[in-house]
Design a protein around this nucleic acid. Structure first.
Length: 584
RNA sequence: GGUCCUGUAGCUCAGUAGGAUAGAGCACCAGAUUCCUAAUCUGGGGGUCACAAGUUCGAAUCUUGUCAGGAUCACCA
């Protein structure tokens, strides 16, 4: 149940009446009417701006119009008080019974509480990570991985049918570089002194292992052959091995994709040629020369005749090249073919998760999707910004081109997958993120993961401890949902429930904005409220969860506590973090 | 030069389908432990929401301009 939806419906019914009675003009813009959860308890539980919005479409002042709406809403017995305040807000306070009734609903829904169906089962393809198969993942890749995974869960929760996809860029020239780097390590394994790894090749130690592996497998079979004799085999083998590394890294984070698509395979199947043909038919392709980019970076620019796609017809700044001067496909060409492939697999809704350095690429890709789907497909791109890995405030550099970079594996080993996942979601994906290895391991409220987990663990400990005082009570969620809710009378209890009532709305808004980090902030606040409530028991024994003299009160408090735990678990589930039962 | 992002408390940041007195954590100050994990909690000070106009009942939020910081910009991926 979504409380906000329900009340909004009540209001909408009244508004329709006002319109049909001619009090409000039928041209009224109803989309501007909202129902907000109030920040100030003096304003009730919810407030709506309906009267202020509608007064423009009627002869009445906001206050008078508000009074009419309020009077009619008063008929409903869900409402305790309805007041007009300020410039014309209608402040609504619900009867406590209404709030209390949420508890059994949460207990019965379990972590499915908050789910909705705004996606209506629509297929969504979310492509994320897509790290080039040239080495193990580093911490920056992890952000995309965690973000994409959480976004997927989020959209699933609101009723989309999500496919989690990984695009393997295994066709470009960087794979040649990888193969050459591997060949060098192979020769090293054979005992040759290779000296410094030349500029432009991958220096990472992980290729040593591969070189040695090839030596064990093939001996010196490749040693005296020319590059074009070994290149193909080394490419294939290297990609295979690098993807194995990456998959291991993903598994260590708990990130699982449903589909892996190989660029090389798509190109091999002629997907690029097909796209070309299709675009040609629509007259969206021509051979031409692009202008030099304006500004500073035009040094060294030379005019080039290339095969171009008319992306500027679809909102891009300039047309974009599909083939390089040497006749090879550009990455863009393959990417168009890939997105066409997604569309043909039934995905009208596509989301790509990229590094923020690819920002300049968004428009052209969206133009291409527009063109190849004739406007039926939509692509939205979420960009993940840099991760600054810190160690007690000191930056630790990571770069894929350098020999020693901080691998995801090292970080996961140091702090665990849950910490990585949670921290990655504590910032909007669009802005840089500091990831401090020290803070992440701290057992204090500096560490938001700890703080949230601690709340969950406290609730679990309640359920363990209560049996020592009341050995005979039944405390499954099902049992607790039968608790006597009338015993929830304090303001702080009702406030707690209101926060839980907000969860479905948080989920919905996060999903609409493609912003899973909002879940993390909500959980932090929910945990804060819980800790605060918990500590009230220090000064007022009446407010403890376990009250030895009152089994009935104890049970209803446990029901409340469990509801909080369920929502925490539900939120952590979106983030892919396992809720803990105790802090050890 | 184009495109885009960012600018909110001393620090790190929340807060966009416009809402009432702009929030949280850290740091600082003052408190709470016969008690379910004090690993926590309570209270306090701290603001020109970069600046300026505009839109309107109402702007941190929308529009335009300015300033500052950053990213990116033909064939790489």
């Amino acid at each position: 149940m979504n409380v906000i939806q329900k009340i909004l419906e009540f209001i909408q019914v009244e508004i329709k009446d006002l319109i049909s009675e001619g009090i409000v003009s039928s041209s009224a813009d109803l989309t501007k009417i909202n129902l907000d959860v109030t920040k100030d308890p003096a304003h009730g539980d919810f407030s709506t701006n309906a009267a202020m919005v509608l007064s423009k479409f009627s002869d009445m002042k906001p206050h008078d119009l508000g009074k009419i709406i309020a009077d009619r809403l008063k008929e409903k017995n869900e409402f305790k008080t309805i007041e007009i305040a300020g410039p014309g807000f209608i402040n609504i306070r619900l009867v406590r019974k209404f709030w209390r009734s949420l508890i059994p609903i949460i207990l019965k829904s379990g972590i499915g509480y908050g789910d909705s169906n705004i996606g209506k089962g629509q297929l969504v393809n979310i492509e994320y990570v897509s790290a080039n198969p040239t080495g193990p993942m580093h911490i920056g890749h992890a952000r995309g991985a965690v973000f994409g995974d959480a976004l997927s869960s989020l959209l699933e929760k609101v009723g989309y049918k999500v496919t989690r996809e990984y695009y393997i860029n295994d066709d470009g020239s960087q794979i040649d570089v990888l193969a050459r780097s591997t060949y060098l390590r192979y020769r090293e394994a054979l005992g040759e002194d290779i000296g410094e790894i030349p500029e432009g090749l991958y220096p990472g130690d992980y290729l040593k292992t591969l070189g040695e592996f090839i030596k064990r497998k093939d001996g010196d079979k490749w040693k005296n052959l020319s590059e074009n004799e070994w290149l193909g085999s080394f490419r294939k083998l290297a990609i295979q091995e690098m993807m194995a590394l990456i998959r291991e890294d993903l598994i260590s984070l708990g990130v699982v994709h449903n589909v892996f698509v190989s660029e090389a395979e798509l190109v091999g199947k002629g997907a690029n040629d097909e796209v070309l043909k299709e675009l040609k038919k629509d007259d969206l392709i021509y051979t031409g020369i692009l202008d030099a980019p304006k500004g500073k970076s035009s040094e060294g620019w030379e005019a080039r005749s290339q095969l171009l796609f008319r992306s500027s017809q679809f909102g891009d700044d300039v047309d974009r090249a599909l083939k390089k001067v040497d006749g090879e496909w550009t990455y863009f060409a393959s990417d168009i073919a890939y997105h066409r492939d997604k569309f043909r697999r039934g995905f009208n809704k596509m989301i790509d998760v990229w590094g923020a350095d690819h920002k300049g690429y968004v428009k052209r890709m969206q133009s291409a999707v527009d063109a190849i789907t004739k406007g039926e497909g939509s692509l939205s791109v979420s960009l993940c910004n840099l991760v600054n890995l810190l160690e007690d405030g000191k930056p630790s550099k990571m770069s894929k081109r350098e020999g020693s970079f901080v691998t995801l594996r090292d970080v996961v080993k140091a702090v665990g997958p849950d910490a990585v996942r949670f921290v990655m979601l504590t910032r909007n994906n669009d802005v840089p993120l500091d990831f401090d290895l020290k803070i992440v391991l701290e057992q204090s409220k500096d560490n938001p993961l700890f703080y949230v987990q601690y709340a969950h663990a406290r609730i679990c400990s309640l359920l363990r401890n209560v049996l020592e005082i009341f050995p005979d009570i039944a405390i499954s969620d099902d049992d607790l949902s039968g608790a006597d809710l009338n015993l929830l009378t304090s303001d702080s209890e009702i406030e707690m429930i209101k926060e839980l009532a907000n969860w479905p709305e948080v989920i919905k808004r996060s999903a609409k904005a493609n912003e899973p980090h909002r879940v993390a902030f909500y959980l932090y606040e929910l945990a804060a409220s819980f800790h605060s409530f918990w500590n009230k028991g220090n000064s007022e024994e009446e407010l403890r969860f376990i009250i030895p003299s009152r089994v009935d009160k104890t049970i209803v408090r446990l029901a409340l506590a469990r509801s909080v735990a369920i929502v925490i678990a539900s939120g952590l589930g979106v983030m892919g973090v396992k809720p803990v039962e105790e802090m050890r």
